[in-house]
Design a protein around this nucleic acid. Structure first.
Length: 293
DNA sequence: CCCCAGTCCTGCGGGC
DNA sequence: TGCCCGCAGGACTGGG
């Protein structure tokens, strides 16, 4: 379930690869159905091997590894993918391994010539992918209209312009990556709780003051979650680049807390509902449906 | 254009 | 003990 905070934590965790050169691309043997890799391995290798890593970035819920020569590797973890520098949880679900070396030509100030690293993509369910694009192709694929502004960058006016007239329920709309990029199922519930907005409110019924609160809650929840290195839920799948758990799950206000006490009003009023076939959590006392007609 | 339901994939836990 | 089924929710697709 990596969302913006988890993917941002992955990005920060693999920062040490900058300045290294890719020496090999290996797909470990795996009894499972292979994940999507584009282009296919021989061409992927031709374009990646020998290239120096210039920087790492993030695009919504994707990790970007920029190579010299205007190319970029896009790692998309979807549900259960991990981007790792340390040993993965197991070998069974290791999907792709980039072998890296710091050579003299990489000229990194602090890099010792000959130092090696492995940048690994691990994915239990295998819904994720690893793709190599030219940078201009990346921009075409994820241009506006395909992917909205990042949730940490979007202005309140932009947010309102994109969702303000929609008749969709606000919680469902927040999951739309074309509207705003980075929010997933977990953080949508957390953000709406902090903003004290009922998840079923149609977007077009939100008042200006509510958009203001929603925008502020987005920044607050996402930044707080990044500080705690994301949420590792019950199945324990999510890990940072060093295979360590996040701790934001200990600070969730409503997500997966149905039947527990609301941290704000103290009542036993957190419920689980379903919207667009996904679980939603909210406090029935702090997030009133209200009269908006 | 807008929006929704179905699909992909694996592991886990509940029911019997 | 084993089997089956439902569930988790990223992004994408096909349809109304």
């Amino acid at each position: 379930m990596p969302e913006l905070p988890e993917v941002e934590t992955m990005r920060r965790g693999i920062a040490p690869v900058v300045g290294y050169r890719i020496t090999a691309v290996e797909r470990p043997r795996c009894r499972l159905k292979p994940i999507a890799i584009e282009p296919e391995l021989p061409q992927f290798r031709r374009r990646a091997v020998g290239k120096r890593i210039e920087r790492v970035g993030r695009l919504g819920k994707r990790v970007l590894v920029y190579l010299e020569g205007e190319e970029v590797i896009v790692l998309e973890p979807r549900m259960t993918g991990l981007v790792l520098l340390a040993d993965p949880p197991n070998r069974e679900h290791l999907r792709l391994c980039l072998h890296l070396t710091a050579d003299a030509a990489s000229n990194g100030s602090a890099l010792q010539t000959g130092a090696t690293l492995s940048l690994m993509y691990w994915d239990r369910r295998g819904l994720g992918s690893v793709r190599l694009f030219a940078v201009d192709e990346l921009h075409r694929r994820y241009s506006d209209g395909m992917l909205g502004p990042d949730a940490l960058e979007i202005s309140i006016d932009e947010l309102r312009a994109r969702l303000g007239s929609s008749r969709r329920e606000i919680k469902v709309a927040l999951l739309d990556q074309k509207a705003v990029a980075g929010i997933g199922n977990l953080y949508a519930s957390e953000i709406l709780f902090l903003a004290r907005i009922h998840p079923r409110r149609p977007c077009h019924t939100l008042r200006k003051s509510e958009w203001l609160k929603l925008h502020a809650a987005m920044q607050e929840v996402l930044e707080e979650a990044i500080r705690y290195e994301g949420s590792t839920l019950g199945d324990g799948t999510y890990r940072n680049a060093l295979n360590q758990q996040g701790s934001y799950q200990n600070h969730h206000r409503v997500y997966a807390r149905a039947g527990k006490d609301c941290p704000r009003c103290g009542h036993n009023s957190i419920v689980r509902t379903v919207q667009a076939q996904r679980a939603t959590f909210h406090c029935t006392r702090c997030q009133r449906e209200g009269n908006w007609s």
